[in-house]
Amino acid sequence: MTPEAAFAAVLVALLVAAILARPILRGGEVDVREDEELASLETAKESKYREIRDAELDHRIGKLTEEDWRRTDRELRAQAVEILERMDKLGGDRAAEGR
């Protein structure tokens, strides 16, 4: 390695080290991530809603008979309610912790 390349390496390494060290030196809770559980329930809820809308479209197109759709829709809505209940419970716990 030539001297100027070595110099460049040291310089770049120092810069990178500074960038990486900043969050650690600053310390404390710099990461404002949501609770994993809550986040996954959130996405589960969204995709459950999409499923409900999808089934509805399938029904209107005529791919799902009235009877099948009612059954599917009932199941999906029950699952969505279950997700919401779990979210509320978690959210409530978290809010309680925060106080």
Binding site: G62, K63, T65, E67, T72
Partner: peptide, 16 residues
């Protein structure tokens, strides 16, 4: 793509 999730009844299959 012609089938639905969970179940498709024979009568709707005929239509599809």
């Amino acid at each position: 793509p012609a089938l639905t999730w969970r179940r498709s009844s024979p009568s709707s299959l005929k239509r599809t």
